[in-house]
């Protein structure tokens, strides 16, 4: 069963099309990376899934049915722009919002404490939100999003503004949630996080699908016939190499279409060169994103 199933949704604000014929799905135990430039339609898509607004056309099914109030307890949502009730303490806020999700105070408190410990925020449990830094506030909001053990979690830029330690702790919780079988939609600009965390990715631009599929599948698809080589000594002329591009201490060798990387490896071996690195070039999602967005690589 698919947790989220979006079919051909379309949404326009006046003359501006926000979402254009978008279709995708999310399964249990899967993280779908929703990526795209600013204004691509990511937030609108999230809001349509959450039933904050209706699509002009198309269908959204959550847990195999149309969204209704009863399903809200199974969903956790972290909006991109975040704020807290400033006068409440961290634990008061978490418990209040958990109570809206229908879980008992005792259960919520136990889970909240677990998460506060996991995120290194336990010592701030009784601190007022107005006394917290932006990063600390974000962690509290993340805890609010997952404290009721939702089946579907929608995270909009969960890592923005966080230091590496806190990013790591959230990343670890997200991975853990996925392993527990939760369905997660992760909207972010941080492509490296998508590569690390997501099973599949949906790249959108101007509301339309640009790319949709497994992360490895997409990276393989965009793989070029080139290799990254770092050798000690002079390589000399190499047959079938069109271009040599220096990259971070190594050289990318762009090969002719019918030339196999194995041929180059054999030649280098025969020339008794010490090979420190020999790797088939696989583009990062960021590079793919930039390429598709029309930004030329350095």
């Amino acid at each position: 069963m698919k947790t989220v199933e979006v079919n051909n949704i379309y949404k326009a604000y006046g003359d501006v099309t926000a979402v254009n014929d978008l279709s995708f799905s999310v399964k249990p135990g899967e993280i779908l990376g929703l990526i795209g430039p600013n204004g691509a339609g990511k937030s609108s898509t999230n809001k349509i899934i959450l039933d904050f607004m209706k699509p002009d056309s198309g269908q959204v099914k959550i847990f195999n049915q149309k969204m209704d109030e009863g399903l809200k307890d199974k969903i956790g949502y972290l909006p991109e722009e975040r704020g807290l009730y400033r006068r409440l303490t961290a634990i008061e806020l978490i418990l209040y919002l958990a109570s809206l999700k229908g879980i008992s105070r005792g259960k919520a408190e136990q889970k909240a404490d677990e998460l506060l410990i996991q995120t290194g925020m336990y010592e701030n449990r009784n601190k007022k939100n107005k006394e917290m830094s932006k990063g600390m506030g974000q962690l509290i909001q993340f805890i609010v999003t997952v404290v009721h053990d939702p089946e579907l979690i929608i995270l909009d830029e969960p890592f923005s503004g966080l230091d590496p330690v806190r990013t790591e702790s959230i990343q670890s919780i997200i991975s853990h949630l996925r392993d527990e079988g939760k369905s997660i939609i992760l909207s972010t600009h941080q492509m490296n996080k998508v590569e690390e965390l997501c099973n599949r990715v949906l790249m959108i631009n101007h509301g339309r699908t640009v790319l949709y599929g497994g992360v490895n599948e997409i990276r393989t698809k965009f793989r070029k016939n080139s290799i990254q080589v770092d050798v000690e000594g002079e390589m000399g002329d190499l047959p079938g190499v069109i271009e040599r591009i220096p990259r971070n201490g190594s050289i990318e060798l762009v090969l002719e279409e019918d030339v196999k990387p194995q041929l180059i490896l054999d030649i280098l071996y025969d020339r008794n060169l010490i090979i420190n690195r020999f790797e088939i070039t696989t583009p990062s999602l960021n590079e793919i994103f930039l390429e598709l967005a029309g930004v030329k690589r350095e």
């Binding site: 959450l50 904050f52 809200k72 991109e80 704020g83 009730y85 919002l97």
Partner: peptide, 20 residues
């Protein structure tokens, strides 16, 4: 105003209906 400006309204709306 505070809930709108801080987008807490979205968190609330993801939990309960507008009527509630």
């Amino acid at each position: 105003g505070e809930e709108k400006e801080s987008r807490l309204i979205e968190v609330l709306y993801s939990s309960i209906s507008v009527r509630q």
